[in-house]
Computed example of a mutant assay.
Amino acid sequence: MLLPQPLIHGRLVSRYKRFFADLVLDDGREITAHCPNPGAMLGVKDPGQGAWVSWSDDPKRKLPWTLQCVEQGNALVGINTLLPNRLVAEALAQDAIPELAGYQTIRPEVKYAEASRVDFLLSHPDRPPCWLEVKNCHFSRAPGLAEFPDCKAERSTRHLGDLAAQVALGHRAVVLFVVQREDCETFSACADLDPKFAAGLDAAARAGVEVLVYACAMSTETVRIDRRILWTNAHLTAI
Results as ranks from 00 to 15, higher is better:
Gln5Glu: 11
Leu7Asn: 08
Leu7Cys: 08
Leu7Val: 15
Ile8Asp: 05
Val13Cys: 04
Val13Asn: 10
Ser14Glu: 15
Arg15Met: 09
Tyr16Cys: 05
Phe19Pro: 00
Ala21Pro: 04
Asp22Tyr: 01
Asp22Asn: 11
Val24Gln: 11
Leu25Pro: 03
Gly28Gln: 13
Glu30Asn: 12
Thr32Lys: 03
Ala33Ser: 04
Ala33Thr: 06
His34Phe: 14
His34Asn: 11
Pro36Thr: 12
Pro36Trp: 07
Pro38Ile: 08
Gly39Glu: 14
Leu42Glu: 12
Leu42Ala: 13
Lys45Tyr: 03
Gly48Leu: 05
Gly50Ile: 07
Ala51Thr: 07
Ala51Arg: 00
Trp52Phe: 11
Ser54Ile: 09
Ser54Tyr: 10
Ser54Cys: 10
Asp58Ser: 12
Thr66Asn: 07
Leu67Val: 08
Gln68Cys: 11
Val70Pro: 01
Val70Gly: 04
Glu71Asn: 09
Glu71Asp: 12
Gly73Trp: 04
Ala75Phe: 05
Ile79Thr: 10
Ile79Val: 15
Asn80Ile: 00
Thr81Val: 15
Thr81Asp: 07
Leu82Ile: 01
Leu83Tyr: 13
Arg86His: 13
Leu87Asp: 07
Ala93Val: 05
Gln94Arg: 15
Ala96Tyr: 03
Leu100Thr: 05
Leu100His: 02
Ala101Gln: 06
Thr105Phe: 10
Arg107Thr: 12
Pro108Ser: 11
Glu109Tyr: 12
Lys111Pro: 06
Tyr112Trp: 15
Tyr112Leu: 09
Ala115Leu: 09
Ser116Thr: 12
Arg117Ser: 08
Arg117Met: 08
Phe120Leu: 12
Ser123Asn: 10
Asp126Lys: 11
Arg127Asp: 04
Pro129Phe: 02
Trp131Leu: 01
Trp131Ala: 02
Glu133Gln: 10
Glu133His: 04
Val134Ile: 14
Ser140Ala: 14
Ser140Gln: 06
Gly144Lys: 11
Leu145Lys: 09
Leu145Gly: 01
Ala146Thr: 02
Pro149Arg: 06
Pro149Asn: 11
Asp150Val: 01
Asp150Pro: 00
Cys151Asn: 14
Cys151Ile: 02
Arg158Leu: 06
His159Leu: 03
Leu160Phe: 02
Leu160Pro: 00
Leu160Gly: 01
Gly161Met: 06
Gly161Cys: 09
Leu163Thr: 10
Ala165Asp: 14
Gln166Ser: 07
Leu169Met: 10
Leu169Gln: 14
Gly170Lys: 06
Ala173His: 06
Val174Cys: 05
Leu176Met: 06
Leu176Pro: 00
Phe177Tyr: 13
Val178Ser: 10
Val179Arg: 04
Val179Ile: 12
Gln180Asn: 04
Arg181Cys: 00
Arg181Glu: 01
Glu182Ile: 03
Asp183Thr: 08
Cys184Phe: 03
Cys184Val: 15
Glu185Arg: 13
Glu185Val: 12
Phe187Trp: 13
Phe187Glu: 05
Ser188Thr: 15
Ala189Asp: 00
Ala191Val: 14
Asp192His: 13
Asp192Ile: 12
Leu193Val: 14
Lys196Leu: 15
Asp202Phe: 00
Ala203Thr: 15
Ala204Asn: 04
Ala205Phe: 00
Ala205Ile: 03
Ala205Arg: 15
Arg206Val: 06
Glu210Tyr: 00
Leu212Lys: 02
Val213Glu: 01
Val213Ile: 03
Cys216His: 03
Ala217Asn: 04
Ala217Glu: 11
Met218Trp: 08
Thr220Gln: 15
Glu221Pro: 01
Ile225Gln: 07
Leu230Ser: 05
Trp231Val: 04
Ala234Val: 02
His235Asp: 11
Leu236Ala: 08
Ile239Ser: 10
